[in-house]
C-alpha cells in the first residue's frame, strides 16, 4: 500500500512537474542587470519570456561583482538588458554579455540624461528611472527589443506595454498630487547618495541646490570620478541641512545607512525612513515592483516632510 502511494506520487511528479519544467526551458530568457529593468521587461513580456535579474533586491549596482552563477545565467540568455550610463560599475553587464556573445540592449538609449559636474569630470547621471517619463523610455526600448526578436507576438507585447505606459502616466500624476501636499519650502530631499536627481528635477525638490539631490555620497557608491564620499561633500550636506531646515533625511535600502545616521546625529535631524533607490524591494514587499517602490518612496517622503 505504502509502495503504491510512493509510486503514484513519483508518477504524478514525473507526469506533471517534469513536463512543466521542460516547457519552461523552451521559453526565451531575458537577463537584466537590475531589478527595475527586469520589472519593466516582465510587464512587456508577460509569461512568454522568462525574465531574470542579476542584481538581487537591495543590491548595489555600482559596486556589484559578478559571480560564476551570473556568468551561467547570461550564457543561457537570449537577450541581455542593462541600464547603461555606467550604473553597472565598470560596465559589468556589458562585459558579461560581450564575453558570452549575447545581444545587449541599453535601456536608457535615446534619453536626455542629466549631466553632473563640469568639464572633464562631468558625468551623465544613470539613475534615470526615478522619473516615470524616463521609465517610459526604458519600457519602449525594452518593448522594441523584445518585438525585434519575437515579431509573431508583436500585438501582445504592444498591448502589455501600452497598458503599463498608462500606469506610469497615472503614477506620474499621482506623485505630483502627493508632492503638492509638501509646502515648497519643505521640499528638501537629503539621501545617502546622489540617486534622486531626476526625481528632484521632475517634482521640484531642493530648489536651493538647482533641483538636484543633496547627498554625502556622489552619483556612485564606488570609486568612479564623482562617486564616493569626500569630506567636502559631507561638509556641504551638513551645511545644506542646517541652512534649509530640512525636517528629515533619508537612508537608502541598497546602501549602508551608517553615514546618513551620523549626519542625522551631527545635525539633530531625524531619519525620515528608508527609500528604495538602486534596487527594488524583496518579493512580497510593497516595493517589489517599480510602481510599488515609487509609491512607497513618495508616501514616505510626503509623510516625513509635509
Amino acid at each position: 500500500m505504502r509502495f503504491s502511494s510512493i509510486f503514484t506520487a513519483l508518477a504524478l511528479f514525473a507526469g506533471v512537474l517534469i513536463p512543466s519544467l521542460a516547457a519552461a526551458e523552451t521559453r526565451p530568457v531575458i537577463v537584466a542587470s537590475t531589478t527595475q529593468i527586469a520589472d519593466f521587461a516582465r510587464q512587456v513580456a508577460g509569461d512568454r519570456i522568462v525574465v531574470k535579474s542579476i542584481l538581487a533586491p537591495g543590491a548595489d549596482p555600482h559596486t556589484y561583482q559578478p559571480t560564476p552563477a551570473d556568468v551561467a545565467m547570461v550564457l543561457a540568455a537570449d537577450l541581455c538588458l542593462e541600464n547603461g550610463l555606467h550604473l553597472e560599475g565598470k560596465d559589468w553587464m556589458a562585459t558579461l554579455a560581450r564575453d558570452a556573445g549575447k545581444p545587449l540592449v541599453t535601456a536608457t538609449t535615446g534619453m536626455q540624461p542629466l549631466t553632473l559636474g563640469e568639464g572633464d569630470d562631468s558625468i551623465a547621471d544613470p539613475h534615470a528611472w526615478f522619473s516615470p517619463r524616463n521609465a517610459a523610455v526604458y519600457v519602449n526600448n525594452i518593448a522594441r527589443a523584445i518585438i525585434g526578436r519575437d515579431a509573431a507576438n508583436r500585438a501582445e507585447y504592444e498591448a502589455r506595454a501600452r497598458l503599463y505606459l498608462q500606469q506610469l502616466r497615472v503614477l506620474d500624476a499621482w506623485i505630483r498630487e502627493q508632492v503638492d501636499r509638501i509646502p515648497v519650502q519643505r521640499r528638501i530631499l537629503v539621501t545617502t547618495h546622489d540617486a534622486f536627481n531626476y526625481f528632484c528635477r521632475e517634482y521640484r525638490f531642493n530648489e536651493g541646490n538647482g533641483f538636484l539631490s543633496i547627498a554625502p555620497v556622489g552619483w556612485s557608491t564606488g570609486a568612479e570620478v564623482g562617486g564616493g564620499m569626500t569630506p567636502e561633500r559631507r561638509r556641504k550636506v551638513v551645511e545644506s541641512i542646517k541652512a534649509s531646515g530640512a525636517p528629515a533625511i533619508f537612508v537608502e535600502t541598497s546602501i549602508n545607512p551608517k553615514q546618513i545616521r551620523q549626519i542625522a546625529e551631527d545635525t539633530g535631524v531625524r531619519i525620515g525612513g528608508e527609500l528604495y533607490s538602486d534596487s527594488m524591494g524583496t518579493a512580497g514587499s510593497a516595493g517589489e515592483t517599480y510602481i510599488g517602490m515609487m509609491r512607497e518612496n513618495v508616501l514616505l517622503i510626503v509623510s516625513a516632510l509635509k
Binding site: 519602449n140 507585447y157 505606459l165 502616466r169 506620474d172
Partner: peptide, 8 residues
C-alpha cells in the same frame, strides 16, 4: 503628444 505613448 504623450510622453508615455508606445513608440516601438
Amino acid at each position: 503628444p504623450d510622453p508615455f505613448a508606445l513608440r516601438v
